[in-house]
């Protein structure tokens, strides 16, 4: 139900549309910070340990108290989760009472693993994925072998099994001490 004070919406408007504003929501009271907090609850569907904010793919939030526009950048050109992530973000915003959230896909500047937050990296590790180590320098791209720490036992005694892991953003490693295989989130 709409609050009576919301005079800008017509009676017809309140009757239609499936993305109806929940009766108890006051989107106009949301702050931009609150929207960031809200987006921090949206998990990456392929790596559900981290949120889209922690992953660094939400680049900007534009909120004027009535309409919102969120800039999202894909991790990889062909990331199959791109559309789903955009839909999950829109869904979370609609659930908070914001109508017609606008999700903008931006490619520039290109996403880098440097944008994964420290909390995000810690959560990746706890989830069993070695977080990207160091910064995404050209050297790391061009084959400078770095020691990847096993997320399970902390050993530095690891080896790369494959340049590509379960998704484009990861490589496959194996720990020579605890013998567990693990994904490594590649620096790009």
């Amino acid at each position: 139900m709409q609050k009576s004070g919301d005079s800008e919406r017509s009676a017809v408007d309140t009757l239609i549309a499936s993305d109806r504003v929940p009766g108890n929501a006051h989107p106009e009271r949301l702050t931009e910070e609150a929207i960031w907090t809200l987006l921090n609850e949206v998990k990456d569907p392929e790596v559900p340990a981290v949120s889209v904010v922690e992953l660094g793919i939400v680049r900007a939030v534009h909120w004027d108290g009535r309409t919102v526009s969120v800039d999202v950048t894909p991790t990889y050109s062909g990331c199959p989760a791109t559309e789903l992530i955009e839909e999950l973000i829109a869904e979370a915003l609609r659930a908070a009472g914001i109508r017609d959230p606008h999700i903008r896909r931006v490619l520039t500047p290109a996403w880098t693993t440097d944008w994964i937050t420290p909390e995000g990296k810690e959560k990746l590790r706890a989830f069993g994925i070695a977080p990207p180590q160091g910064s995404a320098s050209k050297r790391s791209l061009l084959g400078q072998e770095e020691v990847i720490v096993c997320p399970h036992c902390g050993s530095h005694h690891t080896e790369r099994v494959s340049e590509f892991g379960s998704t484009a953003c990861k490589a496959l490693y194996r720990c020579k001490d605890c013998l567990e295989p693990f994904d490594y989130f590649k620096c790009i």
């Binding site: 894909p74 520039t108 996403w111 791209l141 084959g143 590509f164």
Partner: peptide, 24 residues
């Protein structure tokens, strides 16, 4: 053209890995 530069910058990061792997 910023659009071209942007698409290329993203692709270049990916292709660097492709090249590294195929060379090996």
């Amino acid at each position: 053209d910023e659009r071209i530069a942007g698409i290329a910058a993203k692709a270049l990061k990916e292709v660097t890995y492709h090249l590294r792997r195929s060379s090996e």
